[in-house]
Design a protein around this nucleic acid. Structure first.
Lengths: 132, 132
DNA sequence: CTTGACCTTGTAGTTACTACAAGGTGCATA
DNA sequence: TATGCACCTTGTAGTAACTACAAGGTCAAG
């Protein structure tokens, strides 16, 4: 598939896909006779991963690490373990923060259903969670 | 408290705090005789909120909306409800993605504990979740 | 009364895109 | 055959959200 179709499927702009290739986060695909990039389903999955990880607030550097975990199948178990644990910690902190926010948003919606406007505590919901 | 102390407490750089003030996301605090910014605990909570929301991948515009929910106590219930529901949807999608990632990272760590390197499926973990 | 840690404003650099310009490719249609 | 038209190519420049640095003012401690 060409870059335009991959862009439509994943919701990532063609320019951004080329940018990821320049950054080395997405491998340069084979080219057609007309010098067009030719992508397969593996690139689609990888691109979806990158897009969602970015949406979750992970930096390019962090995403590069996660992709390295995935790419280097045969690296030391100790290395995989340390990196995976570090990422797991970050993921769990993010989940905890989001759950606090979800609870508070749910509370506000419930109050609205009863026409009780009630004060908003979303700042407190996130202000007290662990260090990012 | 002065900007430096607020920066140390929240982990947000002084420059970034001034940037948030310029952007109108953090109110301009009173000044001391020496023209130094003078912050209280309310600003600390608000700043912690902004920092964590950014870490979770929310844009400044989205954070502005969340803070507006908190600031305008007396706005229409219908308005609060619609906005809160939209944010709740985004929060729930992020939680689902992070939980898939957490499961996969946990699986890799468990495999490592048994010295079974096992293939990494973190790309698949995020590639198949709902639209961001 | 100066040293040093802090503050002020302003400008310029970084990251991760995003848009646009100038031109090549290839298929359909007149 | 040609001439749109949508698509692709590279490259450069602009945006969002910081981040760093320069040039100078403030003030408690020695």
């Amino acid at each position: 598939m060409r870059i335009g179709q991959l862009a439509r499927i994943t919701g990532v702009k063609s320019e951004t896909i080329r940018f990821y290739e320049r950054e080395g986060i997405l491998a340069a695909p084979p080219r057609t006779r007309a010098n067009y990039r030719d992508y397969g389903p593996a690139e689609e999955a990888r691109l979806n991963f990158i897009r969602r990880a970015r949406d979750l607030g992970f930096s390019m550097a962090r995403i590069r690490e996660l992709l390295d975990l995935s790419d280097d199948a045969d690296r030391s178990c100790a290395g995989i373990d340390a990196l995976a644990r570090s990422h797991l910690g970050e993921v769990e902190r993010k989940i905890a923060s989001l759950e606090a926010l979800r609870t508070e948003l749910g509370r506000m919606i419930a109050a609205c259903e009863q026409d009780t406007v009630g004060d908003c505590r979303i700042i407190d919901a996130l202000a007290g969670t662990a260090e990012p």
